[in-house]
């Protein structure tokens, strides 16, 4: 034993080469046992932790990618949902409009609002139809609740609607019940009011104000507003009648231009 140790001790280099050669031979000539075994040992003890780490990183990258994809899908779905909700609301409005009867001897053309003109409150609206669609100046514009305004300017494909909230717009109106005549005006300070009504006029809160048909622009009978409150100052000759517009001009969406049909 001691002799063997001495021989190997003196010839460590030779022994190392013999062992290395034998190992190489075993790897070459045992492709189904030694080689896979060596690969397994190296894989298990050295490569496996890193391969797990790599898989974890790849999974994380996959999660990030999936997260990004899901976010995109969510954005698409949200957009579609918004469009569907909008279509549902439009459908509801159109259903309501089916029960809306335009004034006698007239027809309505639906228009879409392109933009609103504001001076703290909406005063005008740009609609998507113009002279190419036979829109003319001073045509009444309504929605399903009542009068919204009139056409003020016309372009080939667009037109401007002067809303009732424009202080320069005045409408000849009438109390639906008492038939009292007056002028519906709008003031930024006072809001909508019924002007030129005598102090002894028969009018009360809740009364409906409709167009009188005088002036030739608006046909008679279009709903304009509801009387909100009535004040009479002692010694004054006119009543102060404040109105609540029938059309909420902050929420208008679809409008209809009124066309007089030839009789």
């Amino acid at each position: 034993m001691t002799g063997i140790r001495t021989v190997f001790g003196r010839n460590r280099r030779l022994l190392a080469y013999i062992l290395a050669g034998a190992f190489l031979m075993s790897i070459i000539f045992s492709p189904n046992f030694i080689r896979p075994l060596a690969g397994d040992v190296a894989g298990l003890f050295i490569l496996y932790p890193f391969s797990e780490l790599r898989n974890y990183i790849v999974d994380l990258q996959g999660v990030a990618e999936e997260n990004r994809r899901l976010r995109n899908a969510l954005t698409e779905v949200t957009t579609q949902l918004s469009a569907m909700a909008e279509a549902r609301r439009e459908n509801q409005r159109l259903r309501e409009f089916l029960g809306f009867d335009p004034p006698e001897n007239s027809r309505v053309v639906p228009v879409k609002i392109v933009s609103m003109g504001h001076q703290l409150y909406p005063v005008s609206a740009l609609i998507n139809k113009g002279s190419n669609d036979s829109i003319r100046i001073d045509q009444p514009v309504i929605n399903r609740f009542g009068l919204a305004g009139k056409i003020k300017e016309v372009m080939p494909d667009f037109a401007t609607v002067q809303l009732l909230t424009d202080p320069s717009n005045a409408v000849s109106g009438r109390a639906a019940e008492s038939r009292q005549l007056g002028i519906v005006r709008f003031s930024p300070v006072r809001g909508m009011y019924f002007d030129n009504l005598p102090a002894d006029a028969d009018i009360a809160a809740g009364d409906l104000i409709i167009t009188s048909g005088l002036g030739g622009i608006y046909p008679a009978g279009l709903t304009v507003a509801v009387v909100d409150s009535v004040y009479v100052e002692r010694g004054e000759i006119l009543k102060e009648v404040f109105l609540k517009p029938a059309v909420n001009l902050n929420e208008i969406d679809e409008l209809y231009v009124l066309f007089k049909e030839p009789q």
Partner: peptide
């Protein structure tokens, strides 16, 4: 040393060859 380098080379060849077993003998060599 020479022997250290030799054995380290063989061990490194096994690690490298573990991912491609058919290359392990060549890597060892």
């Amino acid at each position: 040393s020479e022997l250290t380098a030799l054995w380290f080379a063989l061990a490194a060849a096994i690690v490298v060859g573990a991912t491609r077993l058919e290359m392990m003998p060549w890597e060892l060599l």
